[in-house]
Design a protein around this nucleic acid. Structure first.
Lengths: 192, 192
DNA sequence: TTGATTGTCTAGCGGTGCTAGGATCGAATC
DNA sequence: GATTCGATCCTAGCACCGCTAGACAATCAA
């Protein structure tokens, strides 16, 4: 019995290795560089091994996205917990969000730009994604304003920050003015 | 001399055909389906012909993006010109923008999601892109509010609408509540 | 009519995601 | 301890991708 358990442990470890390596490679050289061959070579197994863990490349991207979502949720929660007052929490939230996107571009892409085969905004949305959205909702709901549904407000605020993140990273917006943009956004949207 | 002119006309027509076909194919089956082979087959020429017009696939995407930018700029201008009052203009602008993105997803992707090799936010940004941004700036500058730089306000508003467009299309946001989102956004951001 | 130039196509390169089928290895049985 | 047998993994290969070299045909100038 113990033999089988050991095998399962090793298998789980290898799966984590695959996801971590994919993420690392994506952050280093972009997702285009994450080919099944390169990934297999880095983990020192042959290509088909990847397919014994994941249905295909898209599922690997999805796994990276889930890891990222959990990490981001934790970062957001940490940032908002140390700020006092609803207004300060929202500012910290926005800054942390944009900071995460800027520091982990490949992970952010996996979460929101690429197709990782994940379900969003439905019942079978994976827990880490719900968790990340809940972290947003928690702080943003406080400043939605009277008569505005917290979820609706969160969606709009999130969309705005997401837009800033992606347009900046894609070179559509010059990165220098990020801070005044955040201030303007919070100033106008948050009804403190 | 006339012979050469005819050839140039035919060549230009073929280039337009390539771009239009690429756009059509992308809207029908997504950009993944736009391969150089399929595209060549559709225009009834061999693959290398494409490379006598464009450096590669990315440049074809860029051409579609430029077409789309001109079209979008025209749509935005048309929408704002028939609305009266700054507030109504901004609402019309946002609705038209989201409508364009929803109706032309592949073109929108070419403009903002994919790499078309275009320069943004710099001197050598192609004219149609500048034009589209100018159309945004024209209406949004009116409602930026005192002491807020119009360009900064435009960037933030644009990012918000862009976020709504992409998150909705990627299934990250349910599409039903688009209208209340727009209203909330205009309500809060526009200082009428 | 000849020769050069322009235009286009066939064929092929190295790469991609993914998979079928055979080899190998380790655990359980005799 | 030898033998069976099933799980595990790898080699080899498929069809497709973006892109290009070089052969070929059509057109023009002399």
């Amino acid at each position: 019995m113990s033999v089988q358990e050991r095998k399962e442990r090793e298998r789980a470890a290898r799966e984590r290795l695959i996801v971590a390596t994919a993420r690392e490679l994506a952050e280093q050289q972009g997702w285009d560089a994450v080919t099944t061959r390169r990934l297999a070579e880095r983990i020192e197994y042959s290509q088909p091994v990847l397919y014994s863990h994941f249905r295909g490349k898209r599922e690997i991207i999805g796994a990276v996205a889930l890891d990222g979502a959990a990490e981001m949720a934790a970062a957001l929660r940490a940032a908002t917990s140390t700020a006092d007052g609803p207004r300060a929490r929202v500012t910290a939230l926005a800054r942390t969000y944009l900071d995460f996107a800027a520091r982990n571009p490949a992970v952010y892409d996996a979460m929101f730009e690429l197709d990782g085969g994940l379900a969003f905004a439905s019942e079978d949305t994976p827990q880490p994604l719900k968790e990340a959205f809940a972290a947003l909702l928690e702080s943003l709901g406080e400043v939605a304003g009277d008569g505005v549904h917290p979820a609706l407000f969160t969606e709009v605020f999130w969309a705005a920050v997401h837009g800033l993140a992606t347009l900046t990273r894609a070179g559509r917006l010059p990165p220098e003015d990020t801070e005044p943009r955040v201030e303007l956004l919070v100033d106008r949207l948050a009804m403190v």
